[in-house]
Design a protein around this nucleic acid. Structure first.
Lengths: 137, 137
DNA sequence: GCCAAAGTTAGGTAACTCACTCAACTTTGG
DNA sequence: CCAAAGTTGAGTGAGTTACCTAACTTTGGC
């Protein structure tokens, strides 16, 4: 499936915001841009869309910055894609032509598999995994 | 997932070629274009790529035309997409940035689900279903 | 052996999208 | 009040998409 760079950028930055989660510090655009190697001029747009989509919160002025709006496990990759690249899921295939309906049906099945998987993965899954409980003999 | 019109056109036309399958008649571009509502000028290109990709066979000259190269159940939607829109499966996400690797891994999982489903559906599934065997009491 | 019917090939293009850039503006804390 | 931050809107070069056009080649039938 063809994914835009924009979606990748958004996910990387959200993963980075996930690392800030729990602390009271807010993340700054420049820091996010540097840590995740995203052009900061472009990141401005992406963060705006994520905020308008309710995925992140922001604060202006000095001491300003960004933070996740919910727990990392409460934000799925599907949620992010819907905000950043809505056309990914909304464009249903045409039913034109004699075979249009059956083709559309099959393509929708493939799209459903894509969508289902995207809903199963959360921002938490993009964050470095804490070492699990260790058992010593 | 974002699919090109080109892929839809290709699938509709292949479904139509599926209807010809079994008979000795070859399908003509103009007939395919009309039945599936695909611009014939564009269809020329698509049929060429399908032929170069080994999905269909063609014959030139009078009595010329197109036919599926294999049984309809032997051609998956994945096969068709690989020929018509190879970038759909080949472009792997970047691993740049601190979260690049984990993001790439997750996106690859979603891509794998997409790919797996596309391999499960064949041109046969795009053809009108024959009435099954009927049992009379 | 022509010629008409078919597929083959190459090239062009208008409109659109993507991945940015730039500049002006607003808010906030010290 | 001013500097540090986010906000907003507009612009743009390169590339892609979905076509169109025209010249070419092959084949079968008369």
């Amino acid at each position: 499936m063809k994914l835009s760079l924009k979606v990748e950028y958004a996910l990387r930055v959200l993963a980075q915001l996930g690392r800030y989660h729990g602390s009271t510090k807010l993340a700054h655009i420049e820091d996010l841009a540097e840590a995740e190697e995203v052009p900061s001029n472009y990141l401005v747009q992406i963060l705006n869309e994520l905020r308008n989509g309710g995925v992140i919160n922001s604060r202006r002025g000095k001491q300003g910055g960004y933070a996740l709006a919910k727990e990392p496990e409460g934000i799925s990759l599907f949620d992010v894609m819907m905000v950043i690249d809505p056309g990914l899921f909304s464009n249903s295939p045409s039913r034109a032509g004699q075979s249009g309906p059956l083709v559309a049906e099959s393509l929708n099945k493939i799209g459903a598999a894509f969508e289902a998987r995207a809903k199963e993965i959360s921002i938490r899954d993009l964050m470095p995994r804490d070492a699990g409980p260790m058992y010593y003999i």
